[in-house]
């Protein structure tokens, strides 16, 4: 579905993404975790050809058999919605406030698939049904501000699914929602990916949400994927020091833990242009080796379909 090779995104001399490789097969669900500034949203946008004008991208991308390497904006426009679609964080802000949500979802059907008004309308109601919007006929005529947060996100999912894309990129789709609504949305995304055989890229800073949604997980730091593998493998035996820190920094439920201070990864994510040339995590890493700051670690297998990019791996452990 998606094959991305050595994707690098530069803003001037600063690298927002460095050497990202990504493969997704139909129905596969990949979770991407990382702090803000780790480049995970940038990665999502680069798969839509929607990077900011100032960004320069290199590397190869194939989406559903179409080579998008160095593609012009017009070619991207031709595959958006039809092959790859995206939903965003803040559902209220992401919907045009002046249009009835039904009309918003009808637009790509009329524009891209040439549906008649009636056909498009029928299809929208079907999509609303599929994404679990109750009373679709009434919701069709409502404005975004009249819906609840969860319903709005369902409308955005309907919009993204309208032209049956092969890949759905969900950038923090649950962050702005209440916890129980968020759970239903993640479950909906899993169901849709399974039913439609659609690949899902689930971007989130929330490990629990990713664990619930994805089969595989990719951990990003400083514009790189530092570790990736099946969800249970990565979560139960993390190999990259950053992944380990991330897992330790999660609050654990249960007696005795409540009064303890959570361990934190020291320091903050450096600005893009201040990242180390070698391992991006050097400077904050507790187990750093002398050459970490200058030499880029290669990604090495640490288990079945599980690999991590750290100089410690295979060295003295």
């Amino acid at each position: 579905m998606i094959e991305a090779n050595d994707i690098t995104v530069r803003f001037g001399t600063a690298e927002a993404l460095r050497g990202i490789n990504l493969t997704l097969s139909p129905g596969q669900r990949l979770g991407i975790v990382g702090e803000s500034g780790s480049g995970k949203s940038m990665l999502g946008l680069s798969l839509m050809g929607m990077l900011p004008d100032a960004a320069g991208m290199s590397g190869q991308i194939r989406i559903d058999g179409t080579d998008m390497t160095g593609a012009k904006i017009a070619s991207w426009r031709a595959i958006r919605a039809r092959k790859v679609a995206m939903i965003f964080q803040e559902p209220l802000a992401a919907l045009n406030p002046l249009r009835r949500v039904g009309n918003t979802v009808m637009e790509p059907l009329r524009q891209h698939l040439g549906h008649s008004k009636d056909a498009a309308r029928a299809r929208v109601l079907q999509l609303f049904e599929e994404t679990g919007i109750q009373d679709p006929v009434a919701k069709f005529r409502q404005f975004p501000h009249e819906l609840s947060g969860g319903q709005r996100q369902r409308v955005l999912i309907s919009l993204a699914l309208a032209c049956n894309p092969k890949v759905l990129i969900a950038d923090e789709p649950t962050t702005a929602l209440d916890a129980h609504v968020a759970l239903r949305i993640t479950d909906l995304l899993v169901r849709l990916a399974e039913e439609r055989g659609m690949a899902l890229v689930f971007i989130s800073h929330d490990l629990a949400a990713v664990a619930r949604t994805a089969q595989d997980i990719a951990v990003m730091y400083g514009g790189e994927i530092v570790e990736r593998g099946p969800v249970h493998a990565v979560l139960s035996s993390p190999h990259h020091p950053y992944t380990q820190g991330l897992l330790l920094a999660r609050p654990a439920l249960g007696a005795g833990h409540l009064r303890e201070r959570l361990p934190v990864i020291p320091g903050t994510v450096p600005a893009m242009r201040d990242l180390a040339v070698g391992c991006r995590f050097s400077g904050r890493c507790a187990v750093e080796l002398p050459h970490c700051a200058t030499e880029r670690p290669a990604s090495r297998p640490v288990g079945a379909h599980h690999d991590a990019a750290c100089h410690r791996i295979g060295a003295a452990t």
Binding site: F88, A93, A94, L95, N96, L98, E107, P108, Q111, A160
Partner: peptide
């Protein structure tokens, strides 16, 4: 700069249509 313009672009709508149907009314 608003989010729904990004949504409209992500929907693969033409630049002209985004401008006329999404940006101008708002």
């Amino acid at each position: 700069r608003l989010d729904f313009v990004r949504t409209a672009r992500a929907t693969g709508l033409s630049r002209w249509r985004v401008l006329r149907r999404h940006i101008l009314p708002n």
